[in-house]
Design a protein around this nucleic acid. Structure first.
Length: 466
RNA sequence: GGCCCGUUCGUCUAUCGGUUAGGACACCAGGUUUUCAACCUGGGAAGAGGGGUUCGACUCCCCUACGGGCUGCCA
């Protein structure tokens, strides 16, 4: 029986939740959830200079919006600093680490000289094998006594076996002179203590995995399964950065993409299950596997995201859509729906959702349900509502008043009037559209009538005809 | 500089030595339609370059080019 899967997402709280980070979190979540495992969340806040509570809040909010729920409490790495120090002392006791009294100035000077001479800048501390009786009364760091020979190999589920010569890896600092742990130590201790079995993260950590493996070995701890996934690049193929525009997950929410679409798109970016492009969360959980992750970086493609988004909106249940739309309105700084608007909106979703790729577009298409009388026509609509058209609308109104409010009968009534004037349906649809919505691009006129209801429809027609 | 990773249509990708190299998005051209969206049909579009290995390479190996990562008492 294999041990249950435990994955984690471990962002550092120095800003918003990056889109790349969101994908990393998604992969971890999918992997755990698809296997009945646990998905943990740890905030790597050991850098006190750059970590902020606001950033932590933003990350939590982002994950929540994306629908990635984590198990247990959020772990603060900083809170565990005593345990990290304890492990460092344990390594000292085991002889797998040592005290180094070199000052940062000394080390920097060494590196500069090495660079100038074209030698390796790998620092080798003179204190590695020093006699304790020679220890000065000075601050010290604790460094790992890393093997100088042989190699460290990472059995990576994405990258394959990656081998590093131990002569390339220096004796990394584990505990700083002020007694706080470095990232390298903290991750290993935390991942071990939290029982993490699979470390799925960006491939910018691939080299770190080698260093971290040495710490695991030093403590005789089992090394987790590694999976280093390629980073996401911008549309220009360069590493994704602020100049590409939207890099924060919150930007995507504000752009009106549903969370389900983001999950689908992000999941498919750098991972594949044959030719499947559009899928549900259940399918993603069933299908997601480390084997399907590609080895090359992928670029963001907004057109594709938009397409996937449209499919998700169209496939969503109306009842599920409404709260998402309201969240979008709030996230993008738009006014909330009034009670009346919400009622009409939920009644109209059936004919709106398959015409929009984003919630922004949906709101745009929903113009006719969001407006109240009198409807102010835009320029194009006003042009359509000429004298002749208004006359025809006036004639249509009484016929509709007596119609049962059902699609077939409405169609018949409108067609009859059109025919009486020797017009095609299209000719009559235009002014009707203008009267009902004040726009020239709207859902079907019959859908609008059905959604608006008899009273509102007639009132709008009479407004326009007057 | 050193070490490590990557490179299939514009983009995301399939292929796991033998295919007319497939799909999706995007694009172009038609069609359909009460507008918009959608939808239908068709089209152009790829193995970075060079060497090997092999009866046969997109697939395996080497070199080059390009891109990326690491090389911190940042994470």
């Amino acid at each position: 029986m294999s041990s249950p899967v435990v994955t984690r997402f471990a962002p550092s709280p120095t800003g918003y939740l990056h889109i790349g980070g969101a994908r990393t979190a998604l992969f971890n979540w999918l992997y755990a959830r698809g296997r009945g495992g646990k998905f943990l969340l740890r905030i790597e806040d050991t850098d006190r200079e750059r970590s902020t509570p606001e950033a932590t809040e933003a990350i939590l909010k982002g994950l929540t919006w994306l629908g990635l729920d984590w198990d247990g409490e959020v772990v603060s790495q900083f809170d565990r600093k005593d345990r990290h120090a304890e492990v460092a002392r344990e390594m000292l006791k085991r002889g797998s680490a040592y005290k180094c009294f070199c000052t940062q100035e000394e080390i920097e000077a060494f590196r500069e000289a090495a660079r100038a001479d074209g030698r390796s800048t790998l620092f080798q501390s003179p204190w590695r094998d020093a006699d304790p009786s020679t220890f000065p009364d000075m601050p010290f760091v604790i460094r790992l006594k890393a093997p100088r020979e042989g190699q460290t190999v990472i059995a990576d589920r994405v990258q394959g076996d990656v081998t590093f010569g131990n002569d390339q890896l220096d004796d990394m600092v584990c505990l700083r002179a002020d007694g706080t742990p470095t990232y390298m130590l903290a991750v290993v201790v935390d991942d071990h203590d939290m029982g993490v079995t699979h470390v799925i993260r960006g491939d910018d950590h691939l080299t770190n995995a080698a260093r971290q493996t040495q710490i695991y070995k030093a403590m005789d701890w089992p090394v987790p399964v590694w999976a280093h996934i390629p980073l996401i690049h911008g549309p220009d193929g360069k590493k994704l950065s602020k100049r590409h525009g939207a890099v924060g997950l919150h930007d995507y929410q504000a752009m009106g993409y549903p969370a389900s679409a983001m999950r689908n798109y992000l999941c498919r970016l750098g991972w594949s299950h044959g030719d499947d492009e559009f899928f549900t969360d259940d399918q993603a959980r069933d299908w997601f596997d480390l084997n399907g992750i590609g080895r090359s970086p992928s670029r963001l493609d907004f057109k594709k995201l938009e397409n996937i988004s449209g499919q998700h909106i169209a496939a969503s249940a109306d009842a599920a859509l409404l709260p998402e739309i309201e969240a979008f309105l709030a996230a993008s700084g738009q006014p909330a729906l009034t009670e009346a608007q919400r009622t009409l909106m939920s009644r109209g979703l059936y004919c709106l959702k398959d015409r929009a790729k984003t919630f922004g577009q949906l709101i745009e298409k929903a113009h006719f349900v969001l407006q109240s009388r009198p409807i102010a026509p835009d320029e194009a609509a006003a042009k359509v509502l000429d004298t002749v058209s208004r006359g025809i609308l006036k004639e249509l109104t009484p016929q509709l008043r007596n119609a049962s409010w059902e699609r077939e009968e409405l169609e018949t009534a409108v067609a009859r009037v059109a025919e009486a004037h020797g017009l095609g349906l299209g000719k009559l649809a235009a002014p009707l559209r203008a009267a009902l919505a004040g726009r020239t691009a709207t859902p079907s006129i019959f859908d609008m009538m059905l959604v608006l209801g008899r009273e509102e429809t007639l009132a709008r027609l009479m407004d326009a005809a007057a």
